Amino acid sequence: MSSNAYGAAKAAAWSLTNGVRLELAGQGTLVTGLHLGVADTDMSADYVGDKVDPTEIARVGLDGIEAGRLEVLADEWSRHVKASLAADPSAFYTSLAGH
C-alpha cells in the first residue's frame, strides 16, 4: 500500500470514529479514538523513522479510555498532525521538509 493510500485510510478511520461517536452518544456509549504515527510492529519493520513500542500504545490507549477521553494522541507525531489540522497547510508541509 502506498503511503498516500495509508494516510488516506487513517484519515478516513479518524472521520469514521467521529461519526460513530455521534451516532452512539445518545445511548451513552463512549467511543475513544486512539491515534498514533508508527508502532514498532512487523508491519513497520522496513520503516525508517521514529516508532513507538506497541506496549506503550496500549497503555496510553487504556489510560485514555479509563479517563473517558474522546481522543488519545499516543505519540508526538499524532499530536503534531492534530495540531496542524487547524493551521495553514503550508506550515505542515514545511515541517515535513525538516523530517
Rank of each mutant, 00 (worst) to 15 (best):
H35T: 09
G26E: 00
K51E: 05
T17S: 06
A97R: 14
D75I: 09
L85S: 08
D40C: 05
A97H: 08
E76H: 02
V20P: 04
K51A: 11
A9D: 02
E71T: 13
K51F: 10
L24T: 12
H80L: 04
L36E: 00
P89A: 03
G49P: 03
V72K: 00
R21M: 04
A87M: 13
A87L: 15
T41D: 12
A91S: 11
I65P: 05
E71A: 04
P89D: 06
A5K: 00
H99K: 13
S84W: 08
G68M: 08
R69I: 03
A83K: 09
H35K: 12
F92H: 12
A13T: 12
W14C: 10
G49Y: 00
R21K: 06
G26K: 11
S3A: 08
K51Q: 06
L22H: 15
A74F: 05
S84I: 14
V38G: 12
R59W: 06
I57V: 15
S90L: 14
P54V: 05
G37K: 02
R21I: 05
A67S: 00
Y47E: 02
L73V: 06
G68Y: 06
K10V: 05
A74D: 00
S2V: 10
T32N: 11
S95G: 04
E76A: 11
S15I: 10
K10P: 01
